[in-house]
């Protein structure tokens, strides 16, 4: 699922409209909007708020929303979440026009000096830059006291990166920024800002599409999708009925996986044990040895 985090409602509104997201009225802590494969949260300004909101969104996606997604039966988006931070940033130099979209490949937390690096595999045509994350809006006067040649600055990215480090892979976080001003953040007009975002929507949509494809590729190649749903149910039933410990269950999964990778279909062997019940772990262990022997004999 694509989890979009914006700081402000004016950043969220064009995205909500474009992707036809609907407000989740059951959530009161943050404004959350969603469709089948995108969820958007409006975090409020600052890295602490963005970190809280991103964690919250990940949490509800792993619990509440996954149930809905499984009903949708869409293999392309189950459980492979990518955090996408979309918002405005200031720029100290004028090499990009106001309203330009940039992709971030390094985030510096200006309070702690900690650098974070997302693995950027999408948005090949976009310019990529380093983003400095501050705790307060930066003006031209503030920039003069910072020992850097040029900066792109925002207030949320380092919070998002901290969440990504904890909960996702490095390629499952994307930071997209639209330049709103050349470090004169006080004179911004809401409608003009919305216009910048609307203008960049085709590029944002393209990035979202690439992230979805990347999630699909990842899910197809690197996640454990070897067991069919019916096999999962039988394996669960066997493990419970035969009072398997966690380690015994792992042995069973390993043996079944091995049989499958060797091209055999172990379901018939498993079915015979799905309704057998035991009274002790010792008894269960005997059955585990029996199943393992049968699976290996099948080889």
């Amino acid at each position: 699922m694509i989890l979009i985090i914006t700081a402000l409602m004016i950043e969220a509104a064009p995205l909500i409209e474009h992707f036809r997201l609907r407000r989740d009225m059951s959530i009161h802590e943050f404004p959350v909007y969603r469709n089948a494969d995108i969820a958007l949260i409006v975090s409020g300004v600052g890295k602490v708020r963005s970190a809280i909101a991103a964690t919250y969104l990940l949490s509800i996606c792993n619990t509440k929303y996954n149930k809905d997604i499984e009903n949708v039966n869409d293999d392309s988006c189950i459980k492979d979440h990518t955090l996408v931070n979309i918002g405005f940033c200031g720029a100290s130099e004028t090499q990009y026009e106001i309203g330009s979209l940039i992709l971030i490949n390094k985030v510096i937390d200006m309070d702690t000096g900690i650098d974070s690096y997302p693995d950027v595999f999408v948005g090949k045509d976009l310019p990529a830059e380093t983003l400095c994350c501050f705790s307060k809006p930066i003006s031209k006067e503030d920039f003069e006291n910072i020992n850097r040649k040029s900066v792109f600055c925002d207030m949320e990215s380092s919070g998002i990166m901290e969440v990504a480090k904890k909960f996702t892979y490095a390629h499952q976080v994307v930071i997209l920024k639209i330049i709103s001003d050349y470090l004169n953040p006080k004179n911004l007009n809401k409608e003009t800002l919305k216009g910048y975002l609307a203008k960049q929507m085709p590029k944002i949509e393209q990035i979202i599409k690439e992230v979805k494809q990347l999630n699909y590729y990842f899910s197809k190649n690197f996640t454990d999708k070897i067991f069919k749903e019916e096999e999962k149910i039988i394996l669960e039933a066997i493990s419970e009925n035969l009072k398997f410990t966690h380690a015994m269950k792992q042995i069973l999964l390993n043996e079944v996986k091995k049989a499958k990778l060797e091209g055999t279909e172990p379901i018939k062997i498993l079915e015979a044990y799905s309704k057998v019940k035991v009274n002790s772990k010792t008894e269960g262990k005997k059955f585990l040895n029996e199943i393992t022997a049968k699976l290996n004999a099948k080889d």
Partner: peptide, 28 residues
């Protein structure tokens, strides 16, 4: 290529949340 200055190679190379298989497809 995008040139990204870093302090030490381990800041990038030793990150905890990297996926080896995905990076292998598109290494930096």
């Amino acid at each position: 290529s995008n040139i990204i200055p870093i302090h030490h190679y381990k800041d990038v190379f030793n990150r905890t949340n990297q996926h080896y298989g995905m990076q292998k497809q598109y290494p930096a």
